[in-house]
Design a protein around this nucleic acid. Structure first.
Lengths: 111, 111
DNA sequence: TTAAATATATTGGTCACCCAATATAATGCA
DNA sequence: TGCATTATATTGGGTGACCAATATATTTAA
């Protein structure tokens, strides 16, 4: 019924329903902790979700967030360091409130 | 920065990142509470998320869950009552565990 | 100095979700 | 009976997330 992913063998990924659609939210949330470069973000996502997004997933998502003015990029050697803009900080704050009010009930029952 | 939806004026919907991709998960979760017909499910989703899915969203999703054997349908008058199958009960249980382990950290900081 | 490894990036294709628009079936009421 | 309402359902068009494959730039190691 559940799958495992090579990157995170301890996490069971449900097969009944995927939970795509949360990528941009999770990226913004991770960047509230600290600035990170692309592959670092991908690895943090792997730890959380059990699946590491491929380059074809993560880089277009980062590009879109940059175009929307929610994150900014700074090249350092081979890495591109991403961090939240003021608009991104406001946005993720709102989004977290919404997320908690929408999904909080599910947590209450499982904690 | 945030939007309102006619169906639920008290819920602020973030504009920085949508959270699509959780529909099937939420439908299965709602059906752990009680059996419901389509429009009832749509209204419960509106209460949770601030947006009520249109017929073109909810019915294909229900059809897909039925094809996958996760829910079963019983016609009663003009209504179709949906309920979880055993497979659906196992699936949503797994999915809830995954959801809580993946997203729990976000809640911890906002509660 | 050359090869391997790491990080970034794009392309093309699939899928779940989203809506508006349209259609049909069943119910309820005048 | 006939009309409005409610519920179910499909179609077509769009978007974000997803992957595999491919390419380029930078750094590291042999």
């Amino acid at each position: 019924m559940s799958k495992k992913n090579a990157c995170c063998p301890e996490i069971d990924i449900p097969t009944c329903c995927d939970m795509r659609g949360m990528l941009s939210f999770l990226i913004l949330w991770l960047l509230t902790k600290r600035s990170m470069y692309g592959q670092e973000i991908a690895e943090e996502l792997a730890k959380m979700r059990g699946t590491k997004p491929t380059p074809g997933t993560i880089y277009p998502a980062l590009k879109e967030l940059r175009i929307k003015g929610l994150i900014k990029a700074k090249k350092e050697g081979k890495n591109v360091i991403y961090s939240l803009t003021d608009s991104g900080k406001n946005g993720i704050d709102e989004a977290c409130k919404y997320f908690c009010s929408s999904f909080g009930e599910i947590f209450q029952e499982y904690k």
